[in-house]
């Protein structure tokens, strides 16, 4: 009965609603994708094509920027650093954050909810206010310019993020699942790892991906806490943009930018199908 009503309603609305939605979708896509498109386009231009007025879409593409600039600015090394730091921070945060989120979702201890809220609230502090204290702590510990420093720094904002996302996810799972597992012979930990984690894999994976991306593009802490050895791609980009000696090398900037986005896009495309499938049958109730 209700199905018929919905169908009828949809049919009536279609002419306007459908076009509005499509137009909305296209607008959003253009808004989000155009800057990236322009960046990629620019990275294949010769310097003289970059600042033409009006801007040109048609030019002789070249990979000259890529070949000439990249070795000299230590880009491969920085790319490797970025991978190490982003993956390390993502993995540690997903492990710690999901367990913390599980505790928040399930364990009934007075004050635990308040504690969770406080952890989240700590994210209200502007990162710049934390950067200097963090630098001092790292220096006192002899940890400046190391991968682990950045990884730990990123964990300070990724763990609360993962914790709150996963808390919502776990809360939606019926508690009887773990109780059943505990009666079947699991400890609380066993129930979490054997039952809850496998069921939550789509959620865990998408959270992990977002965490990695957040760490991947982080600039401020990387700028403050690293120097040469552990510095990451965003720092390199900032360096190019803010080069006061030679002026900003826009070609190099867009080329490095493109290279930064590329792995993320490839990764997202690889897991996208799996993610959507996971989210679609995320209705895990028995």
């Amino acid at each position: 009965m209700s199905a018929t009503l919905t169908l009828a309603g949809r049919r009536r609305k279609r002419p306007i609603g459908r076009y509005v939605r499509i137009a909305g979708g296209i607008t959003a896509c253009i808004m989000f994708l155009f800057p990236i498109f322009w960046m990629v386009l620019t990275s294949f231009k010769m310097p003289r094509d970059i600042f033409t007025t009006p801007p040109t879409f048609f030019f002789t593409p070249t990979i000259e920027t890529y070949t000439s600039y990249l070795q000299h600015a230590d880009i491969p090394n920085r790319m490797l650093n970025t991978v190490i730091v982003a993956c390390g921070a993502g993995l540690i945060s997903i492990a710690a954050g999901s367990m913390a989120g599980y505790a928040l979702a399930r364990i009934k201890v007075k004050g635990l909810a308040t504690m969770g809220a406080l952890i989240l609230l700590s994210r209200g502090v502007p990162p710049i206010a934390l950067a200097v204290p963090m630098f001092l702590v790292a220096r006192n510990l002899g940890l400046t310019d190391k991968h682990i420093t950045l990884i730990l720094a990123y964990c300070t904002f990724l763990i609360p993020y993962v914790m709150w996302l996963m808390r919502g996810f776990f809360k939606a799972l019926p508690e009887e699942l773990e109780e059943s597992a505990m009666l079947d012979g699991c400890s609380r930990f066993g129930a979490f790892f054997r039952i809850i984690v496998p069921i939550s894999l789509p959620g865990l994976l998408s959270t992990l991906i977002f965490s990695v991306i957040l760490a991947w593009e982080e600039l401020l802490f990387a700028l403050v806490l690293t120097n040469r050895y552990a510095s990451t791609i965003p720092v390199a980009i900032a360096g190019i943009a803010g080069d006061s000696v030679n002026g900003a090398n826009w070609g190099a900037l867009t080329a490095v930018g493109t290279l930064t986005v590329l792995p993320v896009v490839v990764f997202a495309l690889l897991v996208q199908k799996w993610l959507i499938k996971g989210l679609a049958d995320g209705a895990t109730k028995g």
Partner: peptide, 9 residues
């Protein structure tokens, strides 16, 4: 349990 709590995976 009332909701059976079968392990969905």
């Amino acid at each position: 349990f009332q909701n059976y709590a079968l392990y969905p995976h």
